[in-house]
C-alpha cells in the first residue's frame, strides 16, 4: 500500500460520499446517470466475487463491503425512493447498456489471464469500469446546469483514476516483476475518458463560472 493507492481509494470513497450526500440530504439525483450507477454496481459485484474466499487484508475486505453496499444503495435510491426517483433525468439518460456490457464481456472472454468463471468476471469488471462513466458523461453534456455536487462527483472519480495510474507507476519501480497489462490498459483508457471533462472542470473553476460542457 503506497500513498497514491491510499489517496486513490480515499478519493473514490469521497466521490461516493458526495453522491450519497446529494441523494440522501437533498433527495435529488438530478444530473446523475442511473445507467452509470447500475454499471458500477455490476462492476463491484463481478469484481468482488472472491470477497469471502480470498482474504488479503481487513482494509480491502471493508472497502469491498463499502463499495458494494454504497453502489447498491445508490441504485436502490434512484429506482425506488419516490422523491429521488422523481428528480432523475430519465429521458436524457439514454445510453444503451448493451453497447457497453456486451463488448466488455466478449473482450473478457478473449483477453484474460485464465479462462475460468471468476477470472473472466474479474477481467470483465475491469473493462466495464473503464467505460461505465460514458452514460454519465453523455448526460453531463446534455445537462445545461451541472450542479456543484454532480461536478465534484465526476471530478473525484476522475482524480481517483489518475491516482491509481500514479500508484501503478510507483509499484512498477518499487516491486520487481510488477506488470499488469490488462489492469493498466483498462485503467489508462478509463482515465483518458475524463480528460475532456477535466479540462472544462478546471477551466470553470479557474474562471469561477458554472460548469457547462460544450455540446
Amino acid at each position: 500500500m503506497n500513498v497514491f493507492r491510499l489517496a486513490g481509494d480515499m478519493t473514490h470513497l469521497s466521490s461516493i460520499l458526495v453522491l450519497l450526500l446529494k441523494i440522501h440530504t437533498i433527495k435529488s439525483c438530478a444530473g446523475i446517470s442511473l445507467k452509470t450507477q447500475e454499471l458500477y454496481a455490476l462492476v463491484f459485484i463481478t469484481r468482488y466475487l472472491d470477497i469471502f474466499d480470498r482474504f488479503t487484508s481487513i482494509y480491502n475486505f471493508l472497502m469491498k463491503l463499502i463499495f458494494l453496499g454504497s453502489s447498491l444503495s445508490i441504485v436502490w435510491y434512484m429506482r425506488r425512493h419516490k422523491a429521488v426517483h422523481r428528480s432523475y433525468d430519465k429521458d436524457q439518460d439514454t445510453f444503451r447498456y448493451q453497447f457497453i456490457v456486451l463488448p466488455c464481456l466478449l473482450l473478457a472472454l478473449v483477453i484474460n489471464h485464465k479462462l475460468t468463471f471468476k477470472e473472466v468476471m474479474w477481467t470483465f469488471s475491469l473493462y466495464l469500469e473503464a467505460v461505465a462513466i460514458l452514460p454519465q458523461l453523455v448526460l453531463l453534456q446534455r445537462t445545461r446546469n451541472i450542479d456543484n455536487l454532480t461536478g465534484q462527483y465526476v471530478f473525484l472519480l476522475g482524480a481517483y483514476r489518475a491516482l491509481y495510474l500514479l500508484n501503478w507507476v510507483y509499484r512498477y519501480f518499487t516491486e520487481p516483476g510488477f506488470v499488469r497489462w490488462i489492469t493498466w490498459i483498462a485503467g489508462l483508457v478509463q482515465t483518458l475518458l475524463y480528460a475532456d471533462f477535466f479540462y472544462y472542470y478546471i477551466l470553470s473553476w479557474k474562471n469561477n463560472v458554472k460548469l457547462e460542457l460544450p455540446a
Binding site: D50, R54, K64, G177
Partner: peptide
Amino acid sequence: KPMESFKDEL
C-alpha cells in the same frame, strides 16, 4: 508469480 497476487487492489 501467481495471477492471484494481482488482486490486492480494489
